[in-house]
Design a protein around this nucleic acid. Structure first.
Lengths: 147, 147
DNA sequence: CAAAATTTAATTGCTTACAATCGAATTATA
DNA sequence: TATAATTCGATTGTAAGCAATTAAATTTTG
């Protein structure tokens, strides 16, 4: 019986991983117009919600570590969408804040969720259920995340 | 109203992506003992099911392209788990077949799905529902995959 | 207060993803 | 059957992810 569990289709990880990459692929054409990659996009989503965010906070919200975020934030800084600076209160902390260009980008990003969402083959209540299950997976977690 | 859609938590892509990476992280410690990465593991899953698989078929089953698979298969060949050879019928086609070591690895992989699955905070019927929704996402797809 | 422990980002190294392009082999078609 | 189109895998270049390590700043504690 264990044998069956080794079937590709029997492993939850597989459709989760494949569906995730596929959905991200659907964002790509829309994000290209904004000169953003997908990871840069979800980083911007956080920044559009909060004025000042530390790398640590970003990492906690996005489940990403500094090894991923540091080069990504430098890239976004190069593009002119944000500024990076050390906190005066605690020099260990690097804060990130949007530039005017970064805030302006928000308007151009607004249509994207609807554009991507409209081509998903799920009913609203199915989408809601998927959310619920994914957040269950995500939140009930032993070794949370890193920095 | 569009503004709300730009909230990180409102985007399906985000929990999907984060949950996917988190689940893959849970495999890592078990896979390390087999000297496999996660992507190498799902590749082995396919090979444990089929004797000879072409790179194209692998790509279709895993939703990965040759740019990902070529170096990965070379790596698995270096580890001694598989052999790569051109098809005699069609020289464009590269076939992959497990070595004895590759087949033997299957036994050591058997406990992994149960080990990972047991720490998931989902009821069996919830897991089933999650499957169903993920495969809906995955299968109903316009621009399928690449090679 | 000084030393130890902790926190925070940055860096390094390795492995994906994947778009784009290429070259070789095969198939279609004019 | 030549040549045009297609298929297949490999290659290249960019951007993630992430473990492990490091360095600097801060906090704890002896």
């Amino acid at each position: 019986m264990e044998a069956d569990q080794l079937l590709l289709e029997q492993q939850l990880c597989f459709p989760l991983y494949a569906a995730s990459r596929q959905l991200i692929r659907r964002y790509r054409p829309h994000l290209e117009a904004l000169d953003l990659t997908y990871t840069q996009y979800i980083t911007m989503l956080v920044l559009w919600e909060e004025q000042h965010v530390s790398v640590k906070t970003l990492g906690q919200r996005l489940y990403l570590d500094s090894g991923t975020l540091t080069p990504l934030l430098k890239q976004l800084e190069r593009k002119g969408y944000l500024r990076r600076f050390r906190s005066r209160e605690d020099e260990r902390v690097l804060l990130v804040e949007l530039t005017e260009a970064g805030r302006a980008l928000r308007e151009r990003a607004k249509p994207i969720p609807a554009l991507v969402g409209s081509c998903l083959p799920l009913e609203p209540e199915e989408t809601a259920e998927l959310y619920r299950l994914l957040y269950r997976l995500l939140h009930t977690d032993p070794e949370q995340n890193q920095t």
